[in-house]
């Protein structure tokens, strides 16, 4: 599924567009501990998190995630936006909680994915 298809169901605001229109979402991961996410999230996934600081962008780039969804309407700093622009990473913001966001993605048929090891 194209990432753009998840915007409306998540009631999300597009903070940084990145390659929203083209990129394919192949799975999803939810987490707020960066060591957990870097180790287990899979390439091409949507990342549901309440973390909105610049290092979140670094983790998404290193994993090769399709996009980041920051939940709970968390404030997103200027530095985070700048880094997302620089890396061309799609950054969405939603008023939904992480649970509600996962639930919405699940209804769309986005599977939870996890890297082995």
């Amino acid at each position: 599924m194209k990432a753009i298809k998840i915007v409306e169901p998540l009631r999300a605001k597009v903070v940084v567009e990145g390659s929203l229109a083209e990129v394919e979402v192949t799975g999803g991961y939810c987490g707020d501990l960066l060591s957990d996410c870097i180790a287990h999230a899979t390439e091409g996934s949507v990342w549901i998190t309440i973390q909105s600081h610049p290092n979140t962008i670094a983790v998404a780039v290193l994993v090769g995630m399709a996009c980041i969804v920051v939940t709970n309407d968390q404030d997103i700093s200027k530095q985070t936006i700048e880094r997302a622009l620089k890396e061309n990473i799609t950054l969405l913001s939603t008023p939904l909680t992480s649970y509600q966001a996962v639930s919405a993605l699940s209804k769309l048929g986005v599977p939870g994915t996890r890297k082995h090891g």
Partner: peptide, 16 residues
Amino acid sequence: ELGFGAGYGLSNMRKC
């Protein structure tokens, strides 16, 4: 608060 400090870094390094 930034999501670091789970205490998994060194063990991730060993596994990888």
